[in-house]
């Protein structure tokens, strides 16, 4: 790979990193896992003046539950860690189902959840999961102050996020569940490692057979990851049965904005959304009962 010339900084603390960001302004680009940024600079589609490698900053490689029951995922937490996490396996079925479907093992060894959401690729899987779970990105400023940005507002367009200049996304946060989490991630891909032709994140919070909160989000079928708000509302307060499942599947298919391309026709992708929602909820029905 022969990228354009760039300056490389590897700060050892967040304070140092903020200093570099200040010096380079919007010419600086943060490198965490690098699995999106490096291909871009390799192809010379991106030519940042400075790459700020945050891999030497301690305290960012974690995922843990807070005392309030929320889950926090640090900016250097790799897909691979999430794939193998006992915590996720026991309590976060949607995330646990997603992690092994991210790209391929080499990408999962390096890439990060926070970096993936920041990259805001409409075909990124994690942003759909975060949408379905009501997740947030925590942005930190040089003065140490932080703000929480719901992922629904964080991804503002294809490859565009809501970070202001001088902010660093330090972690993602998933709020505590109301009830038991059930859910899954289904992904149709042409080959392992491919981006999704259609991806579906389903995250339900259930108690006593009643859905307290429903999260459904789609990957690869629109200019951004799509939150299926109508389908979510149709399920809230209900229990899963053939008719609520059918209604949610129909509403989710309507929410999709697919385009015809090499991965399939718009009609086909919409049909797969319908099929996936039906399958995902039917399976959950079985396991929740």
């Amino acid at each position: 790979m022969y990228p354009s010339r760039f300056h490389y900084e590897a700060p050892r603390s967040l304070d140092e990193a903020f200093g570099v960001l200040q010096a380079y302004g919007d010419e600086a680009k943060i490198l965490a896992g690098g699995q999106s940024l490096i291909p871009l600079i390799k192809l010379r589609f991106a030519a940042p003046a400075c790459i700020v490698d945050i891999n030497n900053i301690p305290g960012l490689d974690f995922h843990e539950e807070d005392s309030d029951g929320s889950l926090n995922i640090g900016a250097l937490c790799r897909h691979r860690t999430l794939e193998r996490s006992p915590l996720l396996r026991s309590k976060y079925p949607t995330m646990s189902a997603t992690a092994p479907l991210i790209a391929d093992p080499m990408v999962r060894n390096r890439g990060t959840l926070v970096g993936s959401v920041c990259h805001a690729d409409p075909q990124g899987d994690w942003a759909s999961v975060m949408l379905a779970m009501g997740g947030e990105i925590i942005a930190r400023r040089a003065d140490g102050s932080e703000r929480a940005i719901p992922v629904s507002q964080f991804v503002v367009g294809p490859f565009q996020n809501a970070l202001a200049q001088g902010e660093i996304a330090v972690r993602a946060r998933v709020p505590a569940a109301r009830g038991t989490r059930t859910g899954t991630y289904l992904k149709l891909e042409r080959r392992v490692g491919d981006f999704a032709t259609v991806g579906l994140a389903v995250a339900l919070e259930v108690s006593g057979g009643t859905i307290n909160r429903a999260g459904l989000a789609l990957t690869g079928v629109g200019p951004n990851n799509i939150q299926c708000t109508a389908a979510e509302q149709s399920l809230a307060g209900k229990s899963l049965n053939a008719s609520t499942i059918e209604q949610a599947a129909r509403l989710a298919a309507e929410a999709a904005q697919p385009k015809t391309d090499v991965r399939g026709s718009a009609e086909y992708k919409r049909h797969v959304v319908y099929t996936f929602v039906t399958r995902a909820l039917s399976n959950r029905q079985a396991s929740a009962a």
Binding site: K259, T260, D261, V262, S265, A266, Y268
Partner: peptide, 19 residues
């Protein structure tokens, strides 16, 4: 597509968006 519409599917896959 072939199963749904009971028709042949010919040529290279489309590459342009239809919308």
């Amino acid at each position: 597509e072939a199963m749904k519409y009971k028709r042949d599917v010919s040529g290279a896959p489309p590459v342009k968006s239809d919308s």
